[in-house]
Design a protein around this nucleic acid. Structure first.
Length: 180
DNA sequence: CTCGGGATGCGT
DNA sequence: CGCATCCCGAGG
């Protein structure tokens, strides 16, 4: 199946976030392909978006956000959970993958941003990788048409005028949406 | 060097 | 609702 290339990611984060729905996230681990269909995402638009890590400025942590397109941005939250993002066209912008529907070789829960990183074996080791080649990438799929729902993002109530913006996207009535 | 907070999940 | 439990950025 066709691997999504840089031109796909080199657009605004909210566009990429919606386009990623229904695509397959693939991670090859020890020769085994773990595959999940992306069913829920969130867009973080860039430094002006107060919910985005890049709004704190260019630091060692946010370097990948500023300087790459189509790379993985993985970080530890609350001291124990890894979250997986993909950098997009605007410097400082990224898409958070929030939920997957298990497709192949998945033996853990995937309906949440920290759950799917465990199930897909994604952690700090996978930070900063080029997502258009190597063992971690996203492919096209033959999923039929579906309806996209937009809503406010989760857990960003501190982000002032940005907290209620509709940058969370998910496939309507999919069973693997992260619970509210 | 300290200190505080955070894009969560789970059990109560 | 409380807890697990850690990295990073700001300030001294």
């Amino acid at each position: 199946m066709k691997i999504l290339q840089k031109d796909f990611y080199n657009r605004e984060a909210d566009i990429v976030a919606q386009d990623l729905l229904g695509k397959y996230l693939v991670h090859k681990v020890n020769g085994i392909e773990k595959i999940g269909m992306i069913v829920e995402t969130e867009a973080y638009m860039g430094p002006h978006d107060l919910a985005a890590h890049s709004s704190k400025g260019l630091t060692p942590r946010t370097k990948t956000l500023y300087e790459t397109v189509a790379h993985s941005y993985v970080y530890l939250i609350y001291g124990l959970h890894y979250l997986f993002n993909i950098t997009t066209g605007t410097p400082g912008a990224a898409v958070l993958i929030r939920s997957l529907e298990p497709i192949k070789n998945i033996d853990k829960k995937t309906n949440g941003p920290a759950l799917l990183t465990k199930a897909m074996d994604i952690s700090k080791t996978q930070h900063g990788l080029d997502i258009t080649k190597g063992n971690l990438f996203v492919t096209e799929s033959e999923i039929e048409k579906f309806e996209i729902v937009a809503s406010k993002r989760i857990g960003v109530d501190y982000a002032k005028e940005w907290k209620d913006k509709p940058f969370r996207f998910y496939i309507k009535e999919n069973a693997f949406i992260s619970k509210k």
